[in-house]
Amino acid sequence: MAIPVTQCIIKLHEEHHNLEDYQGGVPRWCSGCGDNAILAAVQRLCRDEDLAPERTVFVSGIGCSSRFPHYMKTYGFHGIHGRAFPIAEGVKMARPDLSVFVNTGDGDCCSIGAAHWIHAIRYNMNMTVILHDNHVYGLTKKQASPTSPMGMKSNTTPRGAVLEALNPLTVTLGVQNVSFVAQGVDWIPDLLYDIIAKAYRHRGFSFVRIIQRCPEFLPKMFEPWLHDPGKTLLLTHANGLTPSAETSRIYKNQREHDPLDIHKAREIASGEDPIPVGILYQNPEVPCYEEVRGAGQPRTAEHIRAGLEAEFDKVTIWPEEGRTQPRAA
């Protein structure tokens, strides 16, 4: 936070960005892929919040959705499978002034990266996490993911998935220090934008699960929800989403839900039909790890050196003492 003069000067000379300033290339996702809607919403957010591209980082793991950083003209880190969270945490720890986003898929986050995911929630570091959940491994041509519904046929489950699908919302809401959980769907773009904007403005680990279509491998998966607005439950609240009149006209199935009520949030998160859309839980009072850990301790070279010296001193045999002691004897 700068002093007023600096704020005025920055405002005087600040550069405003448009959507093209954040568009890093032509996406190679399939036509109709829900990732496109998420990309559009995130680029809009960057423009509307006037995020400096050089101070914005997108970190991802592996998968279709993890190509996201390539399509953003900001800093990005296309990491390794399941490891988006530790990379993002490292970035945030070293540079708390950066806006950090994590894009991860249902396989990347909920399978190989599940351990990192759980602890990232607990750390509650200030970042925006977008879980692109299309219920399938798309990049490797249709294998069942942890969120694939029971009975879904895929290359690895030709007779249909036999396990109950993992619910990322209830998992997240069950972890200590959870501070923000929301759910969106890629086919309601204005709500998708509102949810991501809320997540970005939340100080802490903002977890947004976005249910998205995979037109290539699961083209019929969400058709019932696409064609029947009644199968979408909008969560509204003064501290959550306030849908526009146009959206409310289409999506009449609404429920007022206070995002501070975690018990109700867990109950709502358990429901799959209708799909709940909105802010399930938000608690701005949960402390962030980077602030708790670094509280009052500036990480200057002098401090680091003093700390190291103190540690070395514990195990150092001083040559002077070695020499003087025999002489004294």
Binding site: L19, P27, S31, G32, C33, G34, N36, R44, P189, D190
Partner: peptide, 25 residues
Amino acid sequence: TARCPSCNECQTINDRMFAYNDNKQ
């Protein structure tokens, strides 16, 4: 337009007839 999820399907058919606005819709 407000409901467009930016999936590119229409532009793939004809990108001169269909275009995106400032919000990429």
